[in-house]
């Protein structure tokens, strides 16, 4: 099984049901996009798959290759190979980017293995150069006082350093100006390869001009209500979401 597979997933927060039987399969090598109106459950999907403790899963399955994700701790899910680029990355004062990424890489090593500092920094600097990040960033506290664009670059830097099997990008375009959008998109595009599946969550079609998806899904009321090619995104841009909602209700 070489896919991130979600089947009939149902999840709620408190009394509020948010995911209502969502099914989706992202095979390795493909980029999928989920679009949908506010409140349709897009970010919830990302958090539930990552094991966020606030959500309760009441039914369905989610598997990464052969492993079930449901019920696992967020760090276990991460180490299985799922990366979430956050819509709002958290600020962690006092913890430098370099130390943080190193700790995250360390957490993936077998006992007795060690990261070699010289190679680590070489690798880190190369990825930072690709993202146009100043090397001074390595010693800055994680996301602390970063601009929106800097935070998103930092997410992509972490993603490229951790090299996950599957990546979910939650509204990575929000808060980005056009230049930052291009840099971040280039970063994601460099990571497209036959060994990796990517799910892009976005509210706007604009991002998909830069990260061109293989499939576009429309989410509404906690479910995927329509799936199409990249042209579906353009249609949504033209017509808005209402017609899809109406179709969904009609069917």
């Amino acid at each position: 099984m070489n896919s991130l597979k979600i089947d009939n997933l149902q999840a709620s927060i408190g009394d509020k049901s948010i995911l209502r039987g969502l099914s989706l399969e992202i095979p390795k090598g493909e980029v999928h996009a989920i679009m949908g109106p506010n409140g349709s459950g897009k970010s919830t999907l990302a958090k539930v798959l990552s094991g966020h403790p606030d959500y309760e899963v009441s039914g369905g399955t989610a598997t990464l290759d052969d492993d079930s994700l449901l019920g696992l701790e967020p760090d276990e899910i991460s180490r299985l190979g799922l990366f979430l680029a956050f819509q709002y990355p958290m600020e962690v004062p006092g913890v430098s980017i370099a130390n943080f990424i190193r700790a995250a890489l360390n957490a993936r090593l077998k006992e007795g293995e060690k990261i070699k500092a010289v190679e680590y920094y070489k690798d880190l600097y190369a990825h930072m150069d690709d993202l146009g990040m100043d090397r001074k960033f390595t010693s800055r506290s994680l996301n602390d006082g970063f601009s929106g664009g800097e935070k998103k670059r930092c997410e992509i830097l972490q993603m490229s350093m951790l090299s996950p099997k599957y990546a979910i990008l939650d509204e990575t375009d929000s808060g980005l100006d056009i230049d930052a959008l291009r840099v971040v998109s280039d970063g994601v595009n460099r990571m497209r390869n036959p060994e990796r599946g990517i799910l892009v969550i976005t509210h706007y079609q604009r991002l998909l001009d830069y990260i061109v998806p293989d499939y576009v899904h429309v989410m509404s009321e906690g479910k995927i209500v329509r799936t199409g090619g990249k042209e579906l995104a353009l249609e949504l841009e033209d017509r808005g979401y209402d017609w899809i909602k109406q179709e969904a209700v009609a069917s």
Binding site: R79, F100, A103, A104, A107, R108, Q158
Partner: peptide, 12 residues
């Protein structure tokens, strides 16, 4: 913050 850091693979 803890969720964010755990998402990168660190234990609590």
């Amino acid at each position: 913050q803890i969720f964010y850091m755990k998402q990168r693979g660190l234990s609590e």
